[in-house]
């Protein structure tokens, strides 16, 4: 059993707290001159392949208020469905796309915004293609362990209907919490921490 290989336990998570920006986005926090730029703030350049899109939204708490002190990271495949990672063995990803972005929610509105490209399809464990998706990781004050979820694209309904993860969601009405509607080149992905529209979070 895999459990037998554990000699140590994963270090316990602790909240990122309200001052996470100091460590992860110091220029955003007004601490200039330490790092040239904040990591993950630019995902694409002129040579990045793929369709340019914007992903935006807010994270909403159980009282309906947007989180203004959250930090969001995303991870996605390139336009061809390849990850820019040493663990990617299927081929070389677009060298002009890291696939990773980091954004603080806006101090007044709570909005996060990523300028990225639409990812290609990536195979599931058994080889079936997954629908295009972006992996989200969310930390903030009051969040004891980072929340993991995925965003899917509303204009990929045929792929979404056959997606192995979405098919696993037993309460079918909750699938829509992971699907971002499109307007122009912008996808809107609001994340609800609690309530009727609570986002499906993952244990992966």
């Amino acid at each position: 059993m895999a459990e037998d290989a554990r000699r140590l336990k994963e270090s316990a998570s602790q909240t990122a707290g309200p001052y996470v920006h100091i460590g992860l986005m110091p220029n955003f926090a007004g601490i200039g001159g330490v790092y040239d730029s904040d990591l993950g703030s630019a995902m694409v350049n002129d040579r990045t392949l793929g369709e340019r899109i914007t992903v935006t939204g807010v994270i909403v708490d159980g009282a309906g208020a947007p989180l203004k002190d959250a930090l969001i990271e995303i991870w996605q495949a390139d336009a061809a469905g390849l990850y820019n990672s040493p663990a990617e063995t299927r081929g070389a990803a677009d060298p002009n796309f890291t696939g990773w972005g980091r954004c603080a929610s806006h101090a007044e509105t709570g909005a996060f915004i990523f300028r990225t490209i639409k990812p290609g399809r990536v195979p599931f464990i058994d080889g079936r293609p997954m629908a295009p998706h972006i992996t989200f990781w969310i930390v903030a004050r009051g969040i004891n362990i980072g929340l993991q979820t995925r965003m899917y694209f509303a204009d990929e309904m045929a792929a979404n209907d056959a997606d192995p993860l979405l098919l696993r969601i037993e309460s079918r009405h909750r699938i829509r919490t992971l699907i971002a509607p499109r307007e122009g080149d912008t996808y809107r992905f609001d994340i609800h921490l609690q309530g009727d529209r609570e986002t499906v979070f993952l244990d992966i």
Partner: peptide
């Protein structure tokens, strides 16, 4: 939480 075996989306990373 929805449990799922890791796919490439989880086992890769920057």
């Amino acid at each position: 939480l929805l449990s799922l075996d890791n796919t490439l989306s989880e086992i890769t990373g920057p």
